[in-house]
Design a protein around this nucleic acid. Structure first.
Length: 576
DNA sequence: CTAGGGTTAG
């Protein structure tokens, strides 16, 4: 019997090529009545190339002589499961236009799609269909409905749906539990969790995840230990929890204690090490991965970019692009790569990045555009940066900060101030980075008084200046010749001044030939950093200017070479 | 229904 044989083959089918062969045989044997079943089977295929298979599935659907509710339902479920939610919704609309009644597959899938894109309007419309087409007793549809209400934040209605369900399975319980947890209602969640008649591993994971996300690791750990069974997600949730509250050591202990690890475990640890600044350990784990996927590369490249290692980030990006790797970079990859490029501040990278974006068909979103704004601004093309900035869908604190800093380093202080004020007008609270930008702008323009006023106003926004902000201020006051004020500011610092702060004062002393403060500054500089040649050179410069030739000579004897120190708020300054 | 990734400074 050909039909039986083909059905068996379809069950085993796992590639597009194979599916097409079977499909051809169905056509030649005139077995088109099998096609709805065929679609159902192919949906079970585990095929990695979603794009190709999506188009193929659609072409089958459109070539069916009589596509019925079942066929449509299968296809809609396929798109929903593959994360193509918008496509799924559009297919549902098409199906309704033909006048077909939706199957339970179609309705539950479309509810899931609405939930994922948080489209409450479409969701409410489908809620009507649930009654209209008689799915009040279908546990799948009802569960999808209650999950939709959880996802759009309406737990009360979700509870109502739940209470009216004639049948409930563990997924229904878990969905509502997840709704309570997501809404931050841990106590209510715990009470509900205790009521679940047959808890599965997901019920437990959900509860553990709730405590972990709230930073209550003690409670999460207590539950974790009581779990009757654990899967990858259980362990990975705990690791994420420890990483998020900065306990990288505990995270690692758990990671090592896992009976088996998957790529999520490794990526979570890599991101954790990245956050704690341990690039070496991150790379060690990355190298241990057998099959590195896109997300592993993204995590490692991001780690380098965030740890001021742009060169390494770009090197790894190039490894990823090797012809045999078949990995296709996405927005996440490019965001880190752009960040790396702008750290290098090299104009050549600009064109290269643009070609990469085009090559890989990456569509700019606000995140990526913000990274590009930074790149353009650092390359001195403030107009291009502005162009992108105006094109943003939503301008957040990061975008404003990048733009303000960009104006600052390009000597456009008035633009920076205007942006800063417009930002306040939009009720966006500036953060530490924003103040670094605006103070840098004042510094570059030599606007000491305005800069100082801005610095003082930081506390109005509840921002505590960091040591770097003090560095910029000392530089700003010092360059303006207000050396005593700069020194007083250092004395009032609530934290230990670093070499950047004292270096800025020393530089200002050289600029204005202030020997008294210069000697103090240089003492602190050499105490904080043993490489002292540059500091002594500066001091000897002051001695020379004020005519103390002997002191100058004493200092310069044995001192050779140049020293580069970093003064926050200004560019790399080479001191001779 | 549970677990992993991006942008601003230094």
């Amino acid at each position: 019997m050909v039909a039986t044989k083909l059905t068996t083959l379809m069950k085993k089918c796992s590639t597009v090529k194979h599916a097409k062969q079977i499909h051809a045989q169905i056509i030649t044997n005139n077995l088109t009545h099998l096609e709805p079943i065929f679609i159902h089977r192919i949906l079970l295929c585990d095929i990695t190339n979603y794009k190709t298979i999506s188009n193929y599935i659609l072409s089958i659907l459109h070539h069916l002589r009589n596509p019925d509710s079942f066929s449509w339902g299968c296809v809609i479920r396929f798109f929903s499961q593959k994360g193509q939610f918008v496509e799924a919704v559009s297919l549902y609309v098409q199906m309704r236009r033909i006048g077909l009644c939706p199957s339970s597959h179609a309705v539950s899938s479309i509810l899931k799609s609405c939930a994922r894109v948080e489209d409450d309007l479409c969701g409410l419309l489908i809620h009507g269909h649930v009654h209209k087409f008689g799915f009040d007793a279908c546990v799948y549809v009802q569960t999808a409905l209650l999950d939709l209400y959880c996802k759009i934040g309406d737990v009360v209605t979700a509870r109502k749906v739940f209470d009216e369900m004639p049948d409930k399975n563990v997924v229904s319980w878990n969905s509502l539990l997840s709704g309570y947890i997501k809404g931050g209602n841990l106590d209510e969640g715990q009470r509900f969790f205790d009521e679940i008649p047959l808890k599965d591993v997901i019920s437990w994971n959900c509860m553990v995840s709730g405590y972990a996300k709230a930073g209550k690791m003690d409670r999460a750990c207590y539950l974790f230990q009581q779990m009757p069974e654990r899967n990858f997600a259980s362990w990975n949730t705990m690791i994420t929890g420890y990483v998020d509250c900065g306990s990288i050591v505990e995270a690692r202990e758990l990671f090592d204690a896992m009976p088996r690890r998957n790529s999520v475990s490794l990526i979570t640890m890599i991101a954790g090490y990245s956050k704690s600044g341990d690039v070496h350990s991150a790379r060690e784990l990355f190298d241990q991965m057998d099959d590195k996927d896109l997300l592993s590369y993204n995590a490692m490249i991001a780690c380098y970019a965030q740890s001021s290692k742009p060169k390494e980030a770009l090197d790894l990006f190039n490894v990823m692009l090797k012809p045999d790797s078949s990995l296709h970079p996405d927005k996440m990859t490019l965001a880190s790569v752009i960040s790396a490029c702008s750290q290098l501040g090299n104009l050549e990278h600009w064109r290269w990045i643009e070609s990469q974006i085009n090559n890989f068909g990456i569509v700019l979103d606000d995140h990526l555009a913000t990274a590009l704004i930074d790149l353009y601004a650092k390359c001195g093309s403030i107009d291009k940066a502005y162009e992108l900035f105006h094109g943003l869908r939503k301008r957040d604190v990061v975008a404003y900060s990048a733009m303000i800093y960009g104006c600052g380093i390009n000597g456009r202080a008035s633009d920076a101030v205007e942006l800063f004020e417009r930002m306040a007008g939009e009720c966006i609270i500036p953060n530490l980075v924003t103040y670094t930008g605006i103070l840098t702008a004042y510094n570059h323009a030599g606007l000491a008084e305005e800069g100082y006023r801005c610095f003082i106003s930081m506390k109005d926004n509840g921002i505590v200046p960091s040591v770097d902000h003090y560095g910029i201020m000392v530089d700003l006051l010092g360059r303006a010749g207000w050396l005593d004020e700069a020194y007083k500011l250092i004395m009032k610092m609530p934290m230990q001044p670093n070499v950047g702060v004292w270096g800025a004062l020393l530089l200002a002393c050289r600029l204005h030939d202030n020997l008294k403060l210069g000697e103090i500054a240089v003492q602190h500089c050499i105490k904080l950093e043993s490489e002292t040649a540059g500091y002594y050179s500066l001091l000897s410069g002051i001695y020379a200017t004020v005519g103390k030739w002997n002191d100058a000579k004493k200092l310069t004897t044995g001192v050779e070479g140049k020293k580069i120190i970093k003064i926050p708020g200004c560019s790399w300054t080479q001191l001779v």
